[in-house]
Nucleic acid binder design. Sequence first.
DNA 1: GCTCTTCTCGTACAGCGTTCGAGTTCACTC
DNA 2: GAGTGAACTCGAACGCTGTACGAGAAGAGC
Lengths: 242, 242
Amino acid sequence: MPSKTGFTSVWSREAPAKRTREQPSLSREQIVRAAMELLDTEGMDALSMRKLGARLGSGATSIYWHVANKEELLELVLDEVYGQARIPDPAVTGWRDAAAAFAYGLRSAILEHPWSVTLIGAMPSLGPNALAVGTTLMNAFELAGFTGMTLEYASASLLSYTLGATMPEVSWLNTVGRSSADAEEWMKAIRPQMRVAAADYPKLLARYEDYERIDFSRARHLAFDFGLISILDGLEARLRQT
Amino acid sequence: MPSKTGFTSVWSREAPAKRTREQPSLSREQIVRAAMELLDTEGMDALSMRKLGARLGSGATSIYWHVANKEELLELVLDEVYGQARIPDPAVTGWRDAAAAFAYGLRSAILEHPWSVTLIGAMPSLGPNALAVGTTLMNAFELAGFTGMTLEYASASLLSYTLGATMPEVSWLNTVGRSSADAEEWMKAIRPQMRVAAADYPKLLARYEDYERIDFSRARHLAFDFGLISILDGLEARLRQT
DNA sequence: GCTCTTCTCGTACAGCGTTCGAGTTCACTC
DNA sequence: GAGTGAACTCGAACGCTGTACGAGAAGAGC
């Protein structure tokens, strides 16, 4: 049953009527869990309603009783990812540590479920878990001393950086991982493309040679840290200004 | 012809053989341009090879001579979006203004082509335009005084923030825009969901009431600015440390 | 026993990306 | 100027997709 507005989302519909049967053979939680398992093991492309039905030992179209759409199902699984990002109590760790822990937590939740990045770009995150993450983050920033709209903006900034840093990273890992090649082979394949770009930026080629000697996962971690510290420093500076 | 590694991307294949015919009825640029028009006017879901073929006045499968895949086609159109993000010469404006202009430019390029956010999450950005954007940004940061790996990290941080701030914004606009409802109606629809979240964060409800009185596009702009200034401040602070 | 609600699911449909192979059109060689 | 081969176009067909629909089962309340 769609809401009055033209827009539809799981989160804008009232909760489904409570069921009378004790244990129907299918439930929304069960479906969401199975979908996540499928996504984690086989990736986004492998998630079809028929496959999901098969995994649940039921007909594909039975799912549609518990979930309106495939898109609704995807909204639900995405919110589960946000559910994995936990924040420590800022009252005990201080706001800065809490904020950093939040960033790491969200980042690793997304890295654990690489398919989630395609969803983040495709739909707004309005589920209870996403909202909870947002509000607890705002709690932390409130404790830091942010007020009014800047409280909003500050937490949005940290969230933005975390997403923006993690998403391209994951989509890179997704693409490399989908192929049989490892990162090293992959760099070799992209070399001709690099030469073209190097025309405008001569140092790029030398820089690129360095890349081939780098421990990638370590570099990715350092890069994330660098940006995180920078943005927290910047926010702290803004705090002192007021 | 795929490269030696298992991974495939337009950018990892050598350029297609030069054509002998003067003007074949189809060309890669033509296809990409038509695809972008279709995407801009009708959105991601409307882009099918058949529709694209029809728009080009040719058979759907003819496209496959010029492009290996639908995914390759999408890599090409995504890179065109990066092509719209221009950076002023940092030597005349100073690095900070150049960096800010870059952020605004990329942000508005993405906003002009809202379908691009689904692609950013789905594939790495390795096209010539994306690379050019990255290298010119690095040029600016080099001028600022960043060196070695921190040059890398600093520009990645700004890029991350810009993407992370813009993408959720666009996916929200996409969803609202797809429905007949405007933002206001939409807020009303989401209210029940808000009440649930408000249990953990009582102030949320009052805050939410404020939202309904806000000029959204102005708020989005202010939020982006706030984060941008914060991260630039943070980067500047790191610069002074070394 | 009847009816109403809740839930399952086989069938069917329109649309998708892509493969294949036959067909056309041109630049080129002998 | 006939012949060859590369460069392209494209209709038909395949296997897959999400989902509408309607028939049916199973239990609850009267």
